[in-house]
Amino acid sequence: MKITIENNEAKFLFRIADTSLILAQRMAELCSNAPFLEEDIAISNCSLDLFGRAEELYKIIATIEGNKFTPDDYVFRRNEREFFNIKLVEQPNEDFAWTITRQFMHDVWAKEVFTQLSSSKNEELVGLCSKVLKEIEYSLLHSRDWMYRLGLGTEESNKRTQDAIDHLLKYVEEIFNFDDLDKEYFSDCANIERVWQEEINRVFSEINIERKEIQPLSMRDFRDGFHSEHIGHLLSIMQYLPRAYPDAKWS
């Protein structure tokens, strides 16, 4: 099965949908591995929100594309170079500081993204945004609270958080290299970066974290389907069954 994308709006929405999906899968990795049970449940909740969000976005994409493919086709039948998520979300759960930092950086970005999409011309998308914005508000509450606990907790937790941030910041620059497609569907691209930098800097300054000068990596853009090596492993696990049994149906 070769998945094709015909429409610009679909092409654009894949960036958001894939980002939700890949982060959901990463968060699901914490199931039975979280620091304590209550947090296990909290992370599962975030993951469920993200899977649900991805599914709804793939449905909207499928509609735009004339229902040639189903959401499950999009998830299980595309290859590495056909995914368009931001690289930030495919970074692994090295430790809980990575998990939380990645989540926080994503949530701040997602909040402005879905705020702007709520004035889209696509009514289905607008409907989805009002639901999603509530989820993000909660997720942000959760991830931001943890940034404070980890940043201001112990020397060790501060150091682990600083390390996670130093690494993950390398994957941020590309998010703000908006292209024509972004400019067509976001109402104010520059504001996405402005809001993000402000909130990140504000929180970092309050939690004893240094925003170091990060040398941008020489890497190609996620908008063209470029990834870190992690994506292949993530997909090979996620897509194993439908790939191993191409004729089988799964509910």
Binding site: A28, S47, F51
Partner: peptide, 26 residues
Amino acid sequence: WLLRAPSLRSKQVLLAKIQDEAGHGL
């Protein structure tokens, strides 16, 4: 099997189920 669940639906259902188990443990 959570990470290998073969559909979006089965993945969400399984995660919600495991989450319930954590809740019931609590």
